[in-house]
C-alpha cells in the first residue's frame, strides 16, 4: 500500500513542519496572554492613567462595527450576485462586474481607509466614529459579499431552477423559494468567514474610527476596536504589562474569530442537514 508513496510521506513531513511553526506562533500568544485574560479584563474599560485595565468598550465596538458592516453589505452583495447568477443567467468570468469585483477585492485596506476618510469626513462632515469606521468596513466588505454569494449560488444545481421555472414560477419566486434556501448553508459559511476577516482589520480603522474609547458610547463616538487596541498598546502603550495586555487582547480577538467561525460552521451544517 505504501509503495510509491514516498512523495506523499515527504509532503506530510513538510506540512507537519509548517504546522509546528504555526502552532509555535499560537502558543506564544496564548502563553503570554492567558495570565492576563480574566473576567475583569473582559468587563472593564482600559485604565488610561496607569496602563492596562480592561477591554470591554473595545469588544463592544468590534462587535457593533463588524456586525453593522456585515448586516448592510450581506444583502447588497447577495443582490448583486443574484443579478449575475440568476438574472443574467450565468456569471461572466472576466465580465465588467467580475473584473470590478476582483480588483476592488484586492485594493489594500489602507487605500480604502483613505478614500472613505475623504468622502465621509471631508465631504459629509461625519466625525471620526464607529459610523465612519463601519462605512470603511462596509466598503471593504461589499466585494467580499458578492464573491461569497456568487460561489454559494453557483453550487445550487441548475436542475433546481429549471424545475421551478418549468412549474410556472416566476424568477423572483424561484430565487426566493428554491435557490436561496438551497444556497443558505454556503452563505452562512461565507458570512462567518467575512465577519472573522473584518474583525482583524486595523490599518483602515486607525484613520477612520479613532483610536480611543469614550465613557458615553454612541455610534457617533470614538470607535477603537480590538485590533486597533493591539496596535496602540504595542506601539505607544504605557505601563509595564503592555506586552501581556496586547497578548490578552490578541487572544480575545482570536477567540472571537474562532467562535464566529465555529458558530457559522455549526449553523451551516444544521441548515445542510435540514435541507436534506
Amino acid at each position: 500500500m505504501n509503495q510509491g508513496r514516498v512523495l506523499h510521506w515527504f509532503a506530510l513531513l513538510v506540512a507537519l513542519g509548517a504546522a509546528i511553526v504555526f502552532l509555535g506562533l499560537l502558543t506564544d500568544t496564548i502563553r503570554e496572554g492567558l495570565p492576563h485574560l480574566t473576567w475583569q479584563f473582559l468587563t472593564t474599560a482600559p485604565d488610561e492613567r496607569r496602563g492596562g485595565g480592561g477591554i470591554a468598550p473595545e469588544i463592544v465596538n468590534t462587535v457593533v462595527m463588524v456586525g453593522g458592516a456585515l448586516l448592510v453589505t450581506a444583502p447588497l452583495g447577495l443582490v448583486v450576485a443574484i443579478y449575475q447568477a440568476e438574472w443574467q443567467g450565468r456569471v461572466h468570468d472576466g465580465g465588467v462586474i467580475d473584473q470590478v469585483r476582483a480588483t476592488w477585492l484586492s485594493v489594500p485596506s489602507v487605500v480604502v481607509g483613505f478614500i472613505v476618510y475623504r468622502v465621509a469626513v471631508a465631504w459629509w462632515h461625519w466625525p471620526l466614529s464607529l459610523a465612519t469606521g463601519g462605512l470603511a468596513l462596509a466598503v471593504m466588505n461589499w466585494p467580499v459579499m458578492v464573491t461569497v454569494s456568487i460561489s454559494a449560488l453557483k453550487r445550487v444545481p441548475h436542475a433546481y431552477r429549471e424545475a421551478s421555472l418549468a412549474l410556472g414560477a416566476t424568477r423572483f419566486d424561484t430565487v426566493r423559494r428554491v435557490v436561496l434556501p438551497a444556497a443558505l448553508a454556503e452563505l452562512i459559511d461565507g458570512w462567518g468567514w467575512a465577519l472573522a476577516r473584518l474583525a482583524g482589520e486595523s490599518a483602515a480603522l486607525i484613520i477612520t474610527a479613532g483610536i480611543n474609547v469614550s465613557a458615553h458610547w454612541s455610534v457617533w463616538g470614538p470607535g477603537e476596536t480590538l485590533a486597533v487596541y493591539i496596535w496602540y498598546v504595542r506601539t505607544e502603550g504605557v505601563g509595564a504589562d503592555a506586552g501581556g495586555v496586547a497578548a490578552a487582547t490578541a487572544l480575545t480577538l482570536m477567540m472571537f474569530i474562532a467562535v464566529t467561525l465555529w458558530l457559522s460552521g455549526r449553523l451551516a451544517d444544521w441548515r445542510r442537514r435540514a435541507g436534506h
Binding site: 471620526l128 484613520i207 483610536i211 469614550s214 465613557a215 470614538p222
Partner: peptide, 14 residues
C-alpha cells in the same frame, strides 16, 4: 468625559 456628561471626545491619529 467622565466629569462632563454630555461631552464626547474622539481622538484620531494621523
Amino acid at each position: 468625559t467622565e466629569a462632563h456628561f454630555p461631552y464626547r471626545l474622539t481622538l484620531g491619529g494621523g
